[in-house]
Design a protein around this nucleic acid. Structure first.
Lengths: 321, 321
DNA sequence: AAAACTAAAGTAAACGTTTACTCTAGTCAA
DNA sequence: TTGACTAGAGTAAACGTTTACTTTAGTTTT
């Protein structure tokens, strides 16, 4: 475990060639035989050579700034805890790759082109940012869109498994509570619920919390209204599209005199640390998502064709269901 | 407006000295006369010389990573919209100074020492992170603590002015609604209220929302309870310690049949874009705060003595009061 | 007044790459 | 067979700093 990292010179002398050849091999530049190129590439792999980012920057004259483009503010909130965790993981992996993260608000999208050299788009499932980037031929990666270079999670499958799990636990009357159901990530979650409900032959019920400044508060008010209008409450389970909604639902249920999970089971989605001690939810592997996004971005910068990476979710059973 | 930025060579030849002398002058290194040093410094200022960050990094062998340390999660929420806006502004200014931002969760504080070379501590008014950093002699800047290198805002004065403003508008029975009143930033806001109330000879009333997963929801429930226990509501104004609380209070008031601002005036604090169309609030100049924090950090890295910078707040009058 | 020291300045190497330019040897056309 | 061409390799300059080392000249010591 040497502290000093290996340089292009060492790699070159190990391969018995000049540093120019190594550089050409590594960067896919012409002027080198395929035989030598692949020999250098595998040797580089073997001794775990990582090009020094600063030397590269110095010669190219620019810092590789990656714009972390936050979601449209009122639509999907940029400060949803899920996104904040993602910002954190992304900055870490970007830094490890020698890329410099800068956060950009949705409103400042035009600045991205002048101030950054690539971008990761968060919460871009519905807006037209991908088109703008496409038109500018600006390298970018999206999350959850599934087109171009994109990281997606098997959200639908997560809810699907959850619904089956709840059924096995004896739940029969399940309500799906979505938020901003017109955006595709909400729809994916709903789709998973629908598929399971169909297979189980149960009645399908869903309710949509309209976008508001506070998800928890909106869910709370909606559920309170529910409890007041129909007594007793006709469902034994509320499947929420995210953890914040679940928090509001649980609070509402308790305020209305119901016991969770005895009277009503409540589930979330995301498994955010803030709530993680209580809620049965579907875990998002945020570090893995971030890592995949950064890898895809590197590939974009290397001119490789875009691809879609899928990250799996995992059911986490806790006390709310 | 030349595109190419000026290098140390040009500066040196303009001054008629060698680049070594320039470097020494700029970095406060010994081996140069005071006369020459100040001449170079002022010339450098004049032609707006900015040292190339990448060359510096290359020679020093390390990237200047700045840890953006998020607040303790359950205590002050790392995803409070105020902080998210701050992250954004901070990454921008750090990048402009050639520093690389990486977000760190409160839990990962130990990683900071191995992965970063300086830090900005957000929401560090109560926890012991400053002490840890002090002990490690690790360069850092805090927000709102007022000790060491720190950016503070005149929060108390903001609420003070707001209270006077409301009084002028004819309001007499004002309730202050704080959140986590044991943390110093909440206390500063309360202090401003108290001072004004004392001067005006009014009755002092304050209520504290205990920390919960959702500020808006907690405020909402607390106000609903208020409305139910005492009818009619004994206050004509609710001064909230932040915008999120105000959202909950306004919603609660409307649900309880009160009109805002006719029956009850409600004010916030922070002036976050998400709410900015409606709420009378106290504006925080987030870009200026971020810039000041980054400047202080640079000074720390240059070995300058720590100082406290104060950023002013501004009353923004809108329709909720 | 010469030797020894020292402060202030300059010179050049180094950091780890990329790339323009040069060299070599093999291939091809005439 | 020779000259022109070319693919594949090497050499060295460049990017903009910092810093170890050297030089210069002024000051002190004896």
């Amino acid at each position: 475990m040497s502290n000093k990292s290996v340089t292009i010179h060492e790699l070159a002398s190990l391969a018995g060639v000049s540093i120019a050849s190594v550089s050409r091999a590594l960067n896919g530049k012409p002027g080198i035989s395929e035989a030598l190129r692949s020999r250098i590439l595998s040797l580089s792999e073997e001794i775990n050579y990582k090009p020094n980012v600063m030397a590269r920057q110095l010669i190219s004259g620019k810092t590789p700034v990656v714009a972390l483009c936050m979601p449209p503010s009122p639509y999907e909130f940029s400060d949803r805890p899920y996104f904040v965790h993602l910002y954190q993981a992304l900055t870490l992996y970007l830094h490890r790759k020698g890329l410099v993260p800068v956060l950009f608000a949705y409103e400042n999208i035009e600045d991205v082109f002048s101030q950054a050299s690539s971008a990761i788009l968060l919460g871009a499932t519905e807006d037209d940012r991908p088109e703008i980037f496409e038109r500018q031929k600006f390298p970018y990666v999206t999350l959850e869109t599934g087109v171009g270079a994109s990281v997606v999670t098997d959200e639908a499958n997560g809810v699907y498994k959850l619904t089956h799990y709840l059924f096995k636990k004896g739940r029969k009357k399940m309500l799906f509570l979505g938020e901003n159901i017109d955006i595709s990530t909400s729809q994916a979650r709903l789709r998973g619920y629908r598929k399971a409900i169909g297979e189980l032959g149960l009645e399908e019920n869903f309710d949509n919390v309209s976008r508001q400044v506070s998800s928890s508060l909106s869910a709370y008010r909606q559920m309170i209204a529910h409890f007041q209008s129909s007594e007793p409450f006709p469902y034994d389970t509320v499947i929420c599209a995210n953890d914040e909604l679940a928090v509001g639902v649980i609070q509402a249920a308790e305020d209305a005199g119901y016991k969770v999970p005895e009277d009503i089971s409540v589930t979330g989605f995301d498994d955010l640390p803030r709530f993680s001690n209580k809620i049965t939810t579907i875990h998002q592997d945020i570090p893995k998502i971030a890592e995949a996004a950064v890898d895809l971005l590197s590939e974009q910068l290397d001119g490789l064709p875009p691809r879609v990476v899928e990250v799996m979710t995992r059911l986490v059973s806790r006390e709310s269901a």
